[in-house]
């Protein structure tokens, strides 16, 4: 019964927002999902609050748009289905813009670029993708790193897929993995406290751009985000957030 009431209430709110037009739309709460397990981009602190670059960017965009925003946590596996099911309106979770995903969602312009790196223990003798033959390589399931590992390394190496990036790190440390294929930034962050590990080989550039995902056809929100993104790039807000996390430009 309560659910029905909530449903009716929700439909009233939506109907109200549509009726009120642009003025009302500014008051509407935008719900944005992030994963909360991908530091430094999104993570949870010990109070359970969501923190990280994705979260900060989302908040800065909302501030620029003068919109009320709520950030919620959602596990990676269900993050696109959840958007389709309208649990939230956007995903700011370091999501790579891929053709596979574009069939399901629309993306904003990129808010940073990513490439892959291989991590291994110092002195492992691995010097790049070619050195991984016969070794065990890990990556997080349903990421670009996983697709790359399965498609490019899968024939000659054992590829292990993890539900979260942190689980993959702990297996690298436990010695179950010889190497880890990962997005460069979280790995860079992780390496800061792990002097015994290092990047090996060259960076693997897959022309991987990161955008905010919105529901397919939600052009209103998409263009609002794009406009706000350009504004925070121009007014220096983006630069400040970038510097808070990385000493180099990540756009």
């Amino acid at each position: 019964m309560r659910m029905l009431k909530q449903l009716m209430f929700a439909s009233l709110v939506v109907a109200g927002a549509i009726a009120a037009g642009p003025a009302g739309a500014q008051q509407k709460t935008i719900t944005i999902a992030t994963e909360g397990a991908y530091p430094p981009f999104n993570a949870k602190d010990s109070t359970g609050a969501l923190i990280g670059f994705d979260v900060d960017i989302a908040k800065a965009l909302c501030e620029e748009m003068k919109a009320k925003c709520e950030i919620v946590a959602q596990d990676w596996d269900g993050i696109i289905p959840g958007l389709e099911a309208k649990k939230y309106d956007a995903i700011s979770a370091s999501m790579s813009i891929t053709d596979e995903r574009k069939q399901k969602v629309d993306f904003t312009n990129p808010y940073y670029s990513n490439y892959l790196r291989i991590l291994a223990k110092k002195g492992s003798g691995i010097t790049g993708p070619d050195g991984l033959k016969g070794k065990t390589v890990g990556a997080q399931r349903s990421t670009v790193a996983a697709t790359y590992s399965e498609d490019k390394l899968g024939r000659t190496s054992t590829v292990k897929l993890y539900d979260t990036q942190t689980a993959a790190y702990s297996d690298l440390e436990a010695g179950r993995l010889d190497a880890l294929v990962s997005d460069v930034y979280p790995a860079y962050d992780w390496l800061k406290d792990k002097p015994e590990y290092e990047f090996v080989g060259e960076k693997i550039d897959l022309n991987d751009k990161i955008g905010i995902a919105v529901r397919k056809g939600d052009t209103e929100l998409q263009s609002a985000f794009n406009k706000a993104l350009k504004a925070i790039r121009d007014n220096g807000t983006y630069g400040k957030l970038n510097a808070k996390y990385f000493p180099f430009d990540i756009f």
Partner: peptide, 19 residues
């Protein structure tokens, strides 16, 4: 859930790529 690619593991991996 501990990275073994049994029937369920393969299913979840395929789902993660195709939704």
């Amino acid at each position: 859930t501990i990275t073994v690619l049994d029937l369920m593991g393969q299913t979840r991996t395929i789902f993660a790529r195709s939704y």
